[in-house]
């Protein structure tokens, strides 16, 4: 069984980078302030909320990519890869929701608000959960793979539509990047953010590889059991 050492390397690197970003968040990046001069401590959530959210979108690309690859080639491995990518996406999506809700509570005073971006992210969460419900309720193996691929592609197309509708509908959610005058970050804050983002992506890659290895193990165990039993 060949081992892909990249998974471990990425895991360690990602761990180091995210840990560094943790410290930089609190000891290096300058605090931001409300218009009245009081410190906006809750802004610190940004450094991890946004990397996780962006990682979730990026991982969904792989769901769609492997979905397309599966539909073209009909090789089971691509379906497995798409499934694992979606699993990692779900993990990040749930983390995004959880940290986002905590931020909302601090800044807006409520746990939840039907604000366009929250709404659409909620919809995305439901769609990703729907992906697994669909997998679980389809019995035939090939059918399950085809349906899951198709739905994964649909979810991936739907996500940017949701994203852009939030920029179009009046939004009270902060737009940090490319939002015109007054948005954007100081260099130290940007560096902290980028380190957290890169680290999170590395971790995402490591998670994906580890789960893939587990899935391969499982298949070999099943195959061996059949061989012994038969």
């Amino acid at each position: 069984m060949k081992r892909n050492p990249l998974a471990e390397i990425m895991l360690v690197l990602g761990g180091l980078l995210t840990t560094a970003a943790y410290f930089m968040t609190f000891f290096w990046a300058p605090p931001t302030a409300y218009p009245d001069g009081r410190v906006d401590f809750a802004q610190k959530i940004f450094y991890f909320h946004v990397p996780v959210a962006e990682a979730s979108f990026l991982v969904l690309i792989f769901t769609a990519y492997y979905g397309i690859r599966f539909l073209m080639t009909r090789q089971r491995i691509y379906d497995t890869k798409a499934k694992i990518a979606t699993e990692v996406a779900l993990f990040f999506v749930l983390l995004t929701m959880a940290t986002g809700i905590l931020w909302t509570k601090v800044e807006w005073g409520v746990w939840w608000q039907w604000e366009p971006r929250l709404t659409t992210y909620f919809i995305l969460t439901l769609a990703v959960i729907g992906y697994f419900v669909l997998r679980n309720s389809t019995e035939d193996e090939e059918r399950r793979a085809v349906y899951a691929s198709a739905f994964g592609i649909l979810v991936f197309i739907n996500a940017p539509i949701s994203f852009f509708i939030t920029r179009w509908l009046e939004s009270i959610h902060p737009i940090v990047f490319g939002g015109g005058k007054g948005s954007g970050l100081e260099t130290t804050m940007l560096v902290t953010f980028i380190i957290a983002q890169v680290g999170m992506l590395m971790l995402g890659y490591a998670f994906y590889q580890l789960r893939l290895r587990e899935e391969e193990f499982k298949e070999r165990v099943e195959a061996l059991k059949i061989e012994i039993g038969g």
Partner: peptide, 8 residues
């Protein structure tokens, strides 16, 4: 499956 995709 339908409701999330229909949202926009």
């Amino acid at each position: 499956l339908f409701v999330p995709l229909m949202y926009p």
